[in-house]
Simulated assay, not measured.
Amino acid sequence: MKPLDGPILETALQAVSTALAHEGAEPETVVICGGAALLSLGFISRRTKDVDVLAGVHPVDGLVDPRPFSPALKNAVEEVAKALGLPPNWFNAGPADQVMAGLPEGFLSRLQRRDFGSHLTVFLPDRYDLIHLKLFAGVDQGPGRHWSDLKALNPTRDEMLAAARWVLGQDAGEVFPGVVRDALRIHDYADIADQL
């Protein structure tokens, strides 16, 4: 199974739109995050294994839980996986719980829109919000690609402080603040850790 680079990602999303149109399905609108969003926005060049769907977008309700995908979207995604040799879960709602937990203030107003044909609209988080989400993923999952992605976003000290304060609010556990501070110190943000 091939990972997604920039051109394959664009082709795959366009193919989902085409498959939806071919089936006479309703157009779909989603917010994606993670590596696919960073790749799409040009912040990274590394490949990613999947497209993380953070939310669906409802014309009245705003961001909504994308689960379960509509039968038409599920079928289109499976069809594209087979056609392009992608993993079965290449398009998934893994991070969707984050919408319920809360997103950075103003998240919705900063989204960037990309249309893939007539039947798929993808919204991408702003760089400011990606810093928040990547810091949370880095704290949650430890050293690895999330921290290198965060470095690629080149956050200012003020942006990191804002992101760290938001991350603190994502878990009410007693040990979590210590985990956040330790992660920041390990990754050369001791000055940010000291301000929390």
Score class of each variant (00 low, 15 high):
L4P: 04
G178K: 06
S40D: 10
L73W: 05
D149L: 06
H119D: 11
A21R: 13
P87I: 05
E28M: 05
F116D: 03
A137M: 10
A137R: 04
I192N: 02
G62S: 07
P177E: 02
W147N: 07
P104Q: 00
S118C: 02
G106D: 02
R145C: 14
P68T: 10
S40E: 14
P7F: 09
R113H: 07
D129S: 07
L168H: 15
P177L: 02
N75S: 15
H146P: 08
D188K: 10
E174D: 14
H187G: 13
L20A: 03
A163P: 01
S17W: 01
W147T: 05
I44F: 14
P71D: 12
H119W: 09
G106P: 00
V139F: 05
L133D: 06
A183Y: 07
L133M: 10
F107L: 02
S70I: 08
Q141I: 07
Q112R: 15
T121G: 00
W147M: 05
W166C: 08
L120P: 00
M1C: 00
T29I: 05
A152K: 04
V30M: 09
M160V: 10
D171F: 13
K134T: 08
V16A: 01
L84P: 08
Y189A: 05
S109W: 07
K49P: 11
P155I: 01
R165Q: 13
R114Y: 01
V179E: 12
L73I: 03
L150D: 09
H132S: 15
H119F: 02
D61T: 08
H58D: 14
F176S: 03
P59L: 09
A193S: 03
E23H: 13
A93L: 03
D129W: 04
